[in-house]
C-alpha cells in the first residue's frame, strides 16, 4: 500500500514538473514583452510618440531621434527581397512538388536545407565580397545599397518560402490535378490554374514567413546596406533599417540614446507580432 502511494505521488510530482516546463515558453514571451516595453515606451514618451515614429532626422548627438528613415529602410529592403525571393521561391517549390523526378528531388531538397542552414553572417560576408563590388562596378553606386541588401535578402528568404510552400502544394488532393487533366488541360495548366489556387493559403503563409525573416534579419543586412540614416528612394543608395539601427549603435549608446534604440526594437517587435498574427490567421483559415 505504501508503495502504491509513493508511486502515485511521484506520478503527480512529475506531471507538475512537466507542466512547469510547458509554462516556460509563456513565461519567456511575457518577460520579453515586459522588458522591451518597460524600457522602450518611456523613451518614446520622452521623445514624443509621433516625433519618434515620423521624425526624419536621427542625430543622437543633438537629441534628435526620428526613426522614419529606418522604417522606410526596412520596408524598402523587405519589399525588394520579396520581389526577388517570392517568384523564384514559389516557382522552385512548384518544380520540386510537381515537376522534378524523384531522383532530382533527392538532390534539390538537401540543397534547400543547406541554404536554410547557412548562418546569416556567411551570407553577409558573401554580400560584402561579391555583391557590393559587383554593384559598384556595374551601376552608379557605392555598392552598399538598398539593391544589394534586397538581392541578398531575396536569396536568404528562398529556403523559408520554399520550405513552407512546397508542402502546401503537395498537400492539395491529387484528384484536383487528375480532374483538370481529364478535362484536357496540360500538366502545366493543371498545376498553375488548379493546384496553385487550391494551395493559395499555404503559399501566402509562406510569403508572410519570408516577410518576417527579411524584416528581422540583422547581421547580413548591416554589412551591405550602407547604414546611412536618411530618407532616400534611390535603390542604389544606402539606407538604414530598424534592425541595423540597433546593432550599430547599441555598443556605445547611453541614456536617452540607448532607450531610443530599445524603442526601435519595440517598433520592430510590434511589426513582427503583427506579421506573426497574420501568419497564424492565414494558417487557421487554410485549415477550415
Amino acid at each position: 500500500m505504501e508503495n502504491i502511494n509513493r508511486s502515485t505521488a511521484k506520478e503527480k510530482l512529475m506531471e507538475l514538473v512537466f507542466l512547469i516546463t510547458a509554462v516556460v515558453s509563456i513565461l519567456a514571451v511575457a518577460l520579453i514583452c515586459i522588458f522591451l516595453f518597460a524600457n522602450g515606451i518611456p523613451a518614446m514618451k520622452e521623445i514624443g510618440f509621433l516625433e519618434f515614429l515620423t521624425g526624419t532626422v536621427w542625430r543622437p548627438g543633438n537629441d534628435k531621434f526620428g526613426i522614419f528613415p529606418m522604417i522606410l529602410g526596412s520596408i524598402y529592403v523587405t519589399g525588394g527581397a520579396l520581389i526577388i525571393g517570392v517568384p523564384v521561391g514559389i516557382l522552385t517549390s512548384v518544380f520540386m512538388a510537381r515537376f522534378c523526378p524523384a531522383k532530382w528531388y533527392k538532390v534539390l531538397k538537401p540543397i534547400v536545407n543547406l541554404l536554410a542552414g547557412i548562418p546569416s553572417i556567411v551570407y553577409g560576408f558573401f554580400g560584402v565580397v561579391v555583391l557590393v563590388p559587383f554593384i559598384r562596378e556595374h551601376f552608379d553606386s557605392r555598392g552598399e545599397s538598398i539593391l544589394c541588401a534586397a538581392i541578398l535578402l531575396g536569396i536568404m528568404i528562398l529556403p523559408t518560402i520554399i520550405g513552407a510552400s512546397e508542402p502546401a502544394i503537395r498537400a492539395v488532393d491529387q484528384s484536383y490535378y487528375e480532374g483538370a487533366l481529364a478535362l484536357g488541360a496540360t500538366h502545366e495548366r493543371s498545376v498553375f490554374t488548379v493546384l496553385l489556387p487550391a494551395a493559395k493559403s499555404g503559399i501566402f503563409a509562406a510569403v508572410v514567413l519570408g516577410v518576417g525573416r527579411a524584416l528581422g534579419e540583422t547581421m547580413a543586412v548591416v554589412m551591405v546596406v550602407g547604414n546611412q540614416p536618411r530618407v532616400t528612394h534611390n535603390m542604389l543608395e544606402g539606407i538604414r533599417t530598424l534592425t541595423t539601427n540597433i546593432v550599430m549603435e547599441m555598443g556605445y549608446a547611453t541614456d536617452l540614446h540607448r532607450e531610443a534604440l530599445i524603442a526601435t526594437g519595440v517598433v520592430l517587435f510590434v511589426f513582427i507580432l503583427i506579421i506573426n498574427f497574420c501568419f497564424s490567421m492565414i494558417k487557421r483559415s487554410g485549415k477550415e
Partner: peptide, 25 residues
C-alpha cells in the same frame, strides 16, 4: 493553445530582439 501560440511567437521573433532582451534581462 496558449503554449502553442507563445511557441509560435518565439519562433518568429528575430534574433536581434532576443539580443536586446538578453541584454536587458
Amino acid at each position: 493553445g496558449v503554449v502553442r501560440l507563445t511557441a509560435e511567437t518565439l519562433t518568429g521573433i528575430p534574433s536581434i530582439i532576443y539580443g536586446l532582451f538578453g541584454m536587458l534581462f
